[in-house]
Amino acid sequence: MATPTDDNRDLLTVVAYMKAAPGKEDELREALKGLVGPTSQEEGYVNYDLHESVEDPGRFFFYENWTSGEALDAHLAAPHVAALVERIPELLDGDGLTVNRLRRIA
Rank of each mutant, 00 (worst) to 15 (best):
T39V: 07
E43R: 08
S40W: 00
Y17H: 14
G34N: 07
P22A: 04
K24Y: 08
P22C: 06
L11T: 05
D26P: 05
Q41C: 09
R29S: 12
A21W: 08
L28M: 13
G44A: 01
T5R: 03
A2R: 10
R9D: 02
M1T: 04
V36K: 06
R29W: 09
E25N: 12
V14D: 11
G34T: 02
L12I: 04
N8A: 01
M18D: 06
S40A: 15
K24M: 15
M18C: 14
P4M: 03
K33S: 05
P4V: 01
E42G: 14
E27C: 13
S40R: 11
M18R: 09
N47D: 07
T3E: 11
E42P: 13
T5Q: 05
M18Y: 04
D7W: 09
A31V: 13
T5D: 02
E27W: 08
A16Q: 04
D10L: 01
R29D: 11
A31R: 11
E43W: 03
G23F: 09
Y48N: 12
A2S: 12
P38D: 08
E42V: 14
E30F: 14
Y17V: 00
L11H: 14
N8V: 00
A20I: 11
A31H: 05
L28H: 07
T5K: 01
T13Q: 11
G34Y: 03
Y17C: 05
E27P: 09
E27A: 15
V14N: 10
P4H: 07
T39C: 08
D7P: 01
E27S: 14
G44Q: 00
V36T: 09
Y45S: 05
T39R: 08
Y48I: 02
E43K: 10
E43F: 04
V14C: 08
P38R: 12
T13L: 08
T5I: 02
A21V: 07
L12W: 04
D26Y: 11
V46E: 04
A2N: 13
E43T: 11
R29I: 06
V14F: 03
A20F: 13
Y17I: 00
D10R: 08
Q41Y: 02
E43Y: 02
L32F: 01
V14M: 07
N8M: 01
P4L: 02
R29C: 11
T13V: 01
N8P: 02
M18S: 12
T13K: 13
L32C: 01
A16Y: 03
G34W: 02
K24W: 10
D26F: 13
A2Y: 14
E25L: 12
Q41D: 09
Y48G: 08
K24N: 08
A21T: 03
A2E: 12
G23A: 03
K19I: 01
K19F: 02
L12H: 12
E30S: 15
A20L: 12
E43I: 06
Y17L: 05
L12R: 15
